[in-house]
Structures are given as structure tokens and as C-alpha cells.
């Protein structure tokens, strides 16, 4: 931990003005970032009226809010649906994107770069522009109102392919060549050699992909139709537009909905940072 050592060495003497300033700055910024979360926790324990009056202390309404939330939303169902979409979606996205990123980097082909550039170009098209054609396609193949329809369009995520290709650049080609000589097939080389050595890349990508499925809103809104297919984001949104929104209930629901992503992030934070810095070194 070189950063901490550096910090300790600097702290041994009198803290410099610069250091004090940067800490004050960091604390202010952190306060701005953390306040909404604090507000969310406080809000979840208060009745709606107190939330709107700006009460800043914990209230007694947490259990009432939970009871009301339970009345309005089928919590086990939306959590189960969201978990299913997120886990299956993350699995397939990582599989497809890592294979594609690996393939783009490891196999030479005359059209490789052109194809890759074309793939990157598709990132420039805003989702709004492809939404209606996509909707028509899924209607044609009778997949509206299915979780396949939610997952399928984002399985070949260009940004994740790009990330895997960049990370694969630091993966040593010799490992795979040695594996080939030892008689491993291409798929075996991928699964037995590449995947284990890229663990931190997978972890970082998993967090990002997990969050994007967990928080996905617009596309699920359009393709999912019945109450039994409802996802968390859709359920939260449906609570927000009313003549008299119940802020306490909404805050509590948001805490419940964001905590799994928080847990995942903190559990995988180290791999995430390592993955971002570059794996395979």
C-alpha cells in the first residue's frame, strides 16, 4: 500500500497547509456526495409529511413505511424478477463480450480492424433511435413481455467488448500458444487459460454489467407488459407519479433497491480497482 505509507510519512511531520486544504476539500465533496444517502435513510424512517417539511432527524415510521410499501408493491416478486434478469444477463454478457474481446485481440484477420471500428461506431447511435425498430423485431418474434427480450439486446454490449479487448492486450499470447502445443482446443484454451488469468477483469466488468442490468429502465419498461414481469426500477417509478406521493415509502424502497448493488460493489471493490488498473500483468 504505497499510498498509505506515503501518507503516514507525510503525517509524521506537521501537516502542510496543502494537505489540510486538500482534506477540507475532500470532506466537503464527500459531504455533498453522502448527504443524499443520509437523507434517504432519514426519509425512510419518517412519514411523508415530515419528509416534505425537511425533517432531518430519524423518525418512528420505518415499520409503517415498510407495511405500506408491502401493500403497494409485490416485493418478493420484483426482487426475484430483477435478480433473475441481472444474474442471467450478467452471465451471458460477460461470456459473449469476453469471447468477442478475446477473439478480436488474439485472432488476426484482414477485416478485423474494420469490423471492430464498425462495432465501435454502433455505440454512437442513441438507444432512442433503435428503440422502435427493436420493439417491432421483438413483437415479430413473439418475445414481448419476456425476460429474454430484456436481456438479449444488451448481451453483445460493445462497451464491454471494448473493455475486454483492451484488457486482453496485456494478456500474454505465449500462454495460449503453449496451451495449443499442449493439445488444448481453442475453446479449452479460452476457458482454462484465459478466463482464470483475467479474473480481476471479469470482476470489474461484472460490477459494471450487474449495475447496468439492475438499474435498466427504459427498455424493460417498453417490452415488459404484465405485473408478474415487473422489475424494481419500474416499480419504483410507478410510486413516484401520484397526486400525493408518499416520500417515506419511496425512500425506503430506494434503499432496498440500491443495497444489493452496494453489497456487490463493496464485496468486489478490490478486484474492481485491480481490473480497472489492468489485469494479466
Amino acid at each position: 500500500m504505497p499510498h498509505e505509507q506515503l501518507l503516514l510519512r507525510r503525517l509524521r511531520g506537521r501537516p502542510s497547509a496543502g494537505l489540510v486544504f486538500s482534506y477540507v476539500f475532500i470532506i466537503i465533496v464527500a459531504a455533498f456526495c453522502l448527504f443524499p444517502f443520509l437523507w434517504m435513510v432519514i426519509g425512510a424512517t419518517n412519514v411523508s409529511k415530515d419528509v416534505s417539511m425537511g425533517k432531518l432527524s430519524l423518525g418512528m415510521a420505518l415499520f409503517d413505511n415498510f407495511a405500506n410499501l408491502n401493500k403497494l408493491v409485490n416485493l418478493p416478486l420484483v426482487f426475484r424478477n430483477t435478480a433473475f434478469v441481472t444474474l442471467v444477463g450478467t452471465f451471458f454478457t460477460l461470456l459473449v463480450a469476453s469471447m468477442a474481446g478475446y477473439g478480436f485481440e488474439m485472432y488476426r484477420n484482414r477485416h478485423r480492424e474494420r469490423l471492430y471500428a464498425f462495432l465501435l461506431l454502433t455505440m454512437m447511435i442513441p438507444f432512442a433511435a433503435v428503440m422502435i425498430p427493436l420493439f417491432r423485431i421483438f413483437a415479430k418474434v413473439q418475445l414481448l413481455n419476456s425476460f429474454i427480450a430484456v436481456i438479449l439486446p444488451s448481451v453483445a454490449s460493445v462497451i464491454v467488448i471494448f473493455y475486454f479487448r483492451q484488457s486482453t492486450k496485456s494478456f500474454s499470447r505465449e500462454l495460449v500458444e503453449a496451451a495449443r502445443i499442449d493439445g488444448l482446443s481453442e475453446l479449452q484454451a479460452f476457458f482454462y487459460i484465459y478466463v482464470p488469468s483475467m479474473k480481476s477483469t471479469y470482476a470489474a466488468a461484472a460490477i459494471i454489467v450487474f449495475m447496468s442490468y439492475w438499474n435498466s429502465f427504459l427498455w424493460p419498461l417498453i417490452v415488459l407488459q404484465t405485473n408478474d414481469k415487473k422489475l424494481l426500477t419500474l416499480a419504483i417509478s410507478s410510486l413516484s407519479s401520484s397526486y400525493t406521493p408518499d416520500f417515506g415509502v419511496i425512500m425506503l424502497f430506494i434503499i432496498l433497491a440500491t443495497s444489493p448493488t452496494l453489497v456487490i460493489f463493496f464485496a468486489m471493490q478490490r478486484q474492481f480497482v485491480a481490473g480497472m488498473l489492468g489485469a494479466g500483468k
Binding site: I132, R136, A139, L144, L218, L221, I222, S238, S241
Partner: peptide, 19 residues
């Protein structure tokens, strides 16, 4: 049960896609 904006968006996409 959806948000008002969500009902409108969904309705608009369904109507304009002809599905």
C-alpha cells in the same frame, strides 16, 4: 401500474410502431 410518464412513453411507442 406505471408512472404517468411511463404510461405515455409506452403508449407512444406502441402506437407509433404499429404493433
Amino acid at each position: 401500474d406505471m408512472a404517468k410518464a411511463d404510461v405515455e412513453q409506452k403508449l407512444l411507442i406502441n402506437l407509433s410502431s404499429g404493433v
